[in-house]
Amino acid sequence: MSELIALSDIHFAYPSGPPVLKGVDMCLMPGERLCIGGHNGAGKSTLLHIIVGLLRPSRGRITAFGAPRREEKDFHEVRCRAGFVFQDPDDQLFCPTVAEDIAFGPLNLGKSRDEAMAIVDEVLERLDLVSFRDRITHKLSGGEKRLVTLAAVLAMEPEVLLLDEPTNALDVDNKARLKEILLSLPQAMILVSHDHRFRGDVSTRTVVMSHGRLVERDMHCTATDETG
C-alpha cells in the first residue's frame, strides 16, 4: 500500500453534541490534491483535526505514513510530517515577526537557530515573500497572513499539506497567487473548501462531506448527489 493517509470508519462527536462524523473512509495517494467540500458544520475541519490527532475519534482507524496512529506519541510524528494550515491565520501566527514564526516549526523539528533562519530565507524566497521577513505578524493584512501561515508550514518540509478553507477572506489576486503556489508544490494535499471554482482549479479529486460521510463526486457535477 502506498497511500500516505488512510482513514477507515471514523466516528466522532463533540462532547454533549450530536455525532459529526459517522463512518468516514478516506485515503490520500502521493501527488494527489484531494478537495473536500460540504456545508458549514458538516465536519470537514473536524476531519483534518482528527488526521493530525488534535481530536480523537470515538471509533475507527487512522493510518498515516505507513503506520497506524493511536496515541499522542504517534501523532506527534504525523504533525511533523503533515503540515496543517488552520482556517483562521490568527490562530497560527503567534510570534512577533514573520521570520520568527516561520522558524518556529523547524526549531520544533530540532534544527539549530542558524539552520532554521536559513530555511526561513529559503522559504520566503520560494514564495516570493522576502519583503515580509521582518514584518510584525499581527499587522499583516488577511491575505498576507494566509501566505505567511502557508510559508510557516512549508518551512517544516511536510510530506502532506492539510489546508482548512485556505481561500477564506482572500481577494481575487491573493487567491490566484495561492492557487499558483499550491499547483507548483509537489506535495500531496487535502484541501477543505466550499469555494467551487477554487476546488475545480486545484483538485485532482473531489469528495463531499454529507451526513457525516465522505461521498465521491465528479468535480464538474453540480447536482447534489447525497447518499448518506
Partner: peptide, 29 residues
C-alpha cells in the same frame, strides 16, 4: 486555539530556551 496550532507544528514543551521563548510569544500575542 493557539496552543493547538503550536501542537500542530510539532511543539512539545520542555525545559529549553525555545520553549520559554515560544510561551513568552504566546502570552505576548
Amino acid at each position: 486555539r493557539l496552543r493547538m496550532a503550536m501542537k500542530a507544528r510539532g511543539f512539545r514543551p520542555s525545559n529549553n530556551r525555545h520553549t520559554y521563548r515560544s510561551v513568552g510569544y504566546l502570552v505576548g500575542m
